[in-house]
Nucleic acid binder design. Structure first.
Length: 186
DNA sequence: AAGAAGATTCGCT
DNA sequence: GCGAATCTTCTTA
């Protein structure tokens, strides 16, 4: 949360501040793609923390995750929404909308605006040789938490985090009015 | 070899 | 608010 996602393209630089995430835990989380062990699709989820795991969902949309544990442990954070900072013209063209609050609101939209697909799966997001990387940013003042969105399993786990009051956050309004948390990193 | 489900989005009612 | 779109992956026969 608050970290800046950056992509360097020939056409220009894209940058956005992460305002909504979901955690997928190792071992115990049956909603995680890694739950049944590595496969061709999810193998990058077992890379060391800081790598990209990108998958195609519903035959239409890609979702970007950042791995979060040691090598060979399957765990990641799904990037669900971000606040556009730079490259807004490129994002608008890709998304086919003018509204800045609709460019990166939702995981499929975020990946589309950044032009991401399986070709970026497995990239090291902490390497200065990558054209897609993460840059430090200030954490939000108030982080709310809720259950994860769109799942049919593990529906009670409170593992979604979002910046309170942000217009760039996805999800139904009732989930975005949870009490703020403090004192821990998200 | 076939079928069901899926970490979503968009358009229509 | 609800259902379709769309295709890959994993599961089951």
């Amino acid at each position: 949360m608050g970290t800046i996602l950056v992509r360097a393209e020939a056409r220009g630089l894209l940058a956005a501040r992460i305002v909504e995430t979901e955690a997928y835990l190792p071992e115990v989380d049956s909603a995680s793609h890694a739950y049944r062990g590595p496969t061709a699709r999810n193998r990058s989820m077992f890379l060391r923390r800081g790598h990209a795991y990108i998958y195609l969902i519903y035959g239409a949309y890609h979702c970007l995750n950042v791995t979060s544990e040691s090598e060979d442990v399957g765990a990641a954070v799904l990037l669900r929404a971000a606040e556009p900072l730079e490259g807004i013209g490129i994002m608008r063209r890709r998304r086919g909308t003018e509204r800045v609050t609709d460019l990166l609101r939702g995981p499929g939209r975020l990946a589309e605006a950044f032009g991401l697909d399986r070709r970026q799966d497995g990239l090291d997001l902490c390497s200065n040789r990558s054209r897609l990387w993460l840059s430090a940013g200030a954490a939000p003042d108030a982080v709310g938490r809720s259950v994860r969105i769109g799942l049919s399993r593990e529906v009670d786990r409170v593992l979604r985090f979002y910046e309170r009051g942000s217009p760039f956050v996805s999800g139904p309004r009732r989930l975005n009015q949870c009490p703020a948390t403090s004192g821990s990193r998200h």
